[in-house]
């Protein structure tokens, strides 16, 4: 204790393992080791003896290869991602203008915002039977699900970002005689970009959930039907392989959006 105090009143004591991750190389090695440990644990925890047990990593990998080698998984993912893409496009094309308008028109704000808050608070999946009753087992129904999952976050974050724009900047533009439209285009929107991007990132996470939910409930030709088919034949390993693939796709898409977010928001980090 006493020696400790003498050594460094100011320096915090650290666990020796923390020294490992002080360099970039150390961090990379630790990450690789963690991945290997995870795979090892998975392999050990898995049990391939009977059909409906948690499959090992090896068997899941084999199942994955089985799905990929005949193109089944690729086709299913392609179909499923069409839903996601359409949903995201609708989300942005509708959500961003609505967000801007709610920020600028106070009556609209007071009407729209409670409904959006409601949509955030409730599990959207509960609305699926209604969507299905109205739109049937269609592409449009699945896209609607994706949109409902994500759009509240686009609207809310856009509105907040637009409202938070420094009033001094709009005052400055006004003093140079800029019209409302020019101020919106040249000042408000660029200033709101980082906030809007943050909203898009959150909405993408939700839209991915919506995509899976839509696939599993309003089954079409995508991964939903593939999973249903495999479930019917009690084959866990390929279902797990599909689940991991979707999660990895999610991680990839989120990483891309985060990268775009950082690029567009570089000026806002001081």
């Amino acid at each position: 204790m006493a020696a400790d105090k003498v050594k460094g009143g100011a320096e915090r004591p650290r666990w020796s393992l923390d020294r490992l991750v002080e360099t970039g190389l150390g961090r990379t090695l630790v990450r690789i080791a963690a991945l290997l440990a995870l795979i090892g644990a998975w392999q050990l925890a898995g049990n391939d003896t009977i059909g409906l047990l948690f499959p090992t990593f090896g068997r899941t990998l084999v199942a994955f290869w089985g799905l990929v080698s005949d193109g089944t998984l690729q086709v299913a993912l392609l179909v499923t991602n069409q839903t996601l893409l359409a949903g995201i496009i609708v989300m942005l094309v509708v959500g961003i203008p609505v967000g801007i308008m709610t920020a600028r028109v106070s009556v609209l704000d007071r009407i729209v915002t409670p409904y959006i808050t409601f949509l955030v608070a409730i599990p959207v999946i509960a609305l699926i039977p209604v969507i299905q009753a109205i739109l049937g087992l269609t592409f449009a129904a699945r896209v609607t699900v994706v949109v409902l999952f994500g759009i509240p976050y686009v609207i809310i974050n856009t509105a907040v970002a637009v409202r938070r724009v420094d009033p001094v900047l709009t005052e400055m533009a006004t003093s140079f005689g800029a019209s409302r439209l020019v101020i919106l285009r040249d000042v408000v929107l660029p200033a709101a970009v980082p906030g809007i991007m943050a909203g898009i990132r959150i909405a993408l996470g939700q839209a991915l959930i919506g995509m899976v939910v839509a696939e599993l409930t309003i089954v079409g030709a995508g991964i939903g039907s593939l999973i249903a088919d495999l479930q019917g034949r009690f084959r866990v390993a390929p279902v797990l392989a599909i689940a991991v693939t979707i999660v990895l796709e999610g991680v990839l898409l989120m990483t891309i959006v985060e990268w775009i977010e950082r690029r567009l928001g570089r000026w806002s980090q001081s």
């Binding site: 900047l169 003093s175 005689g177």
Partner: peptide
């Protein structure tokens, strides 16, 4: 009656567009 081209303002917080 409004802003005009013969006037220009310099702001306390600079009001530069950061992007």
């Amino acid at each position: 009656t409004g802003p005009g081209p013969e006037r220009a303002t310099v702001f306390q917080s600079f009001a530069l567009l950061p992007w």
